[in-house]
Design a protein around this nucleic acid. Structure first.
Lengths: 165, 165
DNA sequence: TGCTACCTGAGAATTATTATCATTCATAAA
DNA sequence: TTTATGAATGATAATAATTCTCAGGTAGCA
């Protein structure tokens, strides 16, 4: 596992950059030096940085870059599928009075949440040594879906990739 | 599924309130009208409300309650296990340049994130009709664990339930 | 090279949450 | 029942993360 040499990683990152540029052209997005620097910083970081960490990394090359640009660009990268937001679909904390073990379905359109029981999720983690020195506490499965209402809505006005950046 | 009558639900909620009061006494927490109102509002809401929604519900009975109290109390409920935070362990968005399908381990102590491959998660969702009118997009499994460093730290200064509320 | 729409930087605005602190109150002991 | 005391609350300030606004700049195309 993780037998990735530096050369291999460099090749992968170069491929990802090319893919990014290509996708930008396809979607009518400009390939700016800032965007390139931000995706490079993201690819270079082994952890899962927050916007500010990316900002600090990029600032070494682009001392005048704005934090707002980093936020905007990271969201753009997620929208076009060149990055993922690790943390949840919600910008504020949601609470659940149901203390029985269960999971959640979240509508990626309206962000509504519904409980769902999915037996066997915990069992997938049994005897997995990838956890290494981590001691397992529990897990939460977030199912991403589109509710009926949002399906209809999307079918009408098809959302454009370009969005409001 | 969901053949829960109103009477049944009322019984359950009453039991949960009693459980809450008992747990407060055990942990040295005061059973205040505000706390009772907040847990009642949480139990009564079918969705997964944010703090402000709970605030608006509780305000009907307690017009003078403070939003800060609602935030504090919801966190307290989570701490003592009478509620769950649906959304993630992080207060700010984390981004991941790895676009290959994978999941995440999060340390509940230091909030560090690590990628993990867990085959078969998606398969658990195949042919599940609980999704109903939701159209499946994907899913994200967040494994909660304690990293080696945080395990050592916790063994030293054992965390107390009462916290700093 | 010039046009144009998109992108960026700067900073204000917004939103969510937490901290501070004086006052009030729940609890338990007298 | 009264009283003492530490904890909880309300009001508000502070902080933190993110988004908005808009003037000026630049990528990409003709």
């Amino acid at each position: 596992m993780q037998m990735v040499t530096d050369a291999c990683r460099a090749d992968y990152n170069a491929a990802r950059l090319a893919e990014f540029a290509e996708r930008c052209h396809r979607d009518g997005l400009a390939v700016t030096p800032q965007r390139l620097a931000i995706i490079r910083a993201l690819l270079a970081s082994a952890d899962h940085p927050r916007a500010e960490a990316v900002y600090n990394a990029v600032r070494r090359e682009h001392p005048h870059i704005s934090l707002a640009t980093v936020h905007r660009t990271l969201e753009t990268l997620c929208r076009i599928g060149e990055a993922r937001k690790v943390t949840a679909l919600h910008d504020s904390a949601r609470y659940d009075g149901n203390t029985a073990p269960h999971h959640h379905v979240v509508c990626i359109g309206c962000r509504r949440i519904r409980d769902i029981e999915i037996p066997g999720v915990e069992r997938l983690l049994d005897g997995r040594n990838e956890l290494g020195e981590f001691r397992l506490i529990g897990c939460a499965l977030e199912v991403h879906a589109l509710c009926a209402q949002c399906q209809r809505r999307r079918n009408h006005r098809r959302q454009k990739i370009k969005g409001n950046n």
